[in-house]
Lab assay of single mutants.
Amino acid sequence: AQEYRALYDYTAQNPDELDLSAGDILEVILEGEDGWWTVERNGQRGFVPGSYLEKL
């Protein structure tokens, strides 16, 4: 798994998404072809927009 940093804040719109704060460090589990990536942070897993992340 790769570590990424959130570039922007994101507020989850659905229960299966995660909130992001700019600067958060996340582990990317799966890069979805639809642009939604499965990530894990502090034991929580959910979808976030891949375009909001940069690889560390």
Rank of each mutant, 00 (worst) to 15 (best):
A6K: 00
T38S: 11
Q13C: 12
N14L: 08
D9F: 03
L30N: 15
G46Y: 06
S51M: 11
L26R: 01
S51R: 12
A22I: 06
V28E: 02
W37F: 11
E54M: 04
D19R: 03
V28R: 06
S51Q: 14
W36K: 15
V39F: 01
Y4S: 08
G23T: 00
E31M: 09
E27P: 05
E17M: 03
E3Y: 15
N42M: 06
D9H: 06
K55G: 06
L56P: 08
N42Y: 08
D24M: 05
A6D: 00
R45E: 07
G35E: 07
L30Y: 13
D24N: 03
E31T: 09
G43A: 08
E27D: 15
Y52N: 08
G32C: 10
V48S: 01
G35A: 04
L20M: 14
A6Y: 01
N14A: 10
L18E: 02
G23L: 01
S21I: 14
L26P: 02
D24G: 03
T38P: 03
Y8T: 11
D16T: 14
D19I: 01
S21N: 10
L20C: 07
P49T: 00
R41K: 13
A1S: 15
G46P: 01
W36T: 10
V39C: 13
W36D: 02
L18D: 00
L18A: 03
E27L: 14
T11Y: 10
G43M: 06
L26G: 07
E17C: 07
G23Y: 01
L56S: 11
G46D: 01
D34A: 08
L30A: 14
V48Q: 01
Y52I: 14
K55Q: 11
F47M: 15
Y8F: 13
D34N: 15
P15T: 10
L30T: 15
N42P: 04
D34C: 12
G32P: 08
G50V: 08
P49E: 02
W37G: 02
Q13G: 10
K55M: 11
D9L: 01
Q44F: 09
G35K: 06
Y4R: 03
Y8M: 14
S51I: 11
G35S: 05
Y4K: 02
Q2M: 15
D16P: 03
Q2C: 12
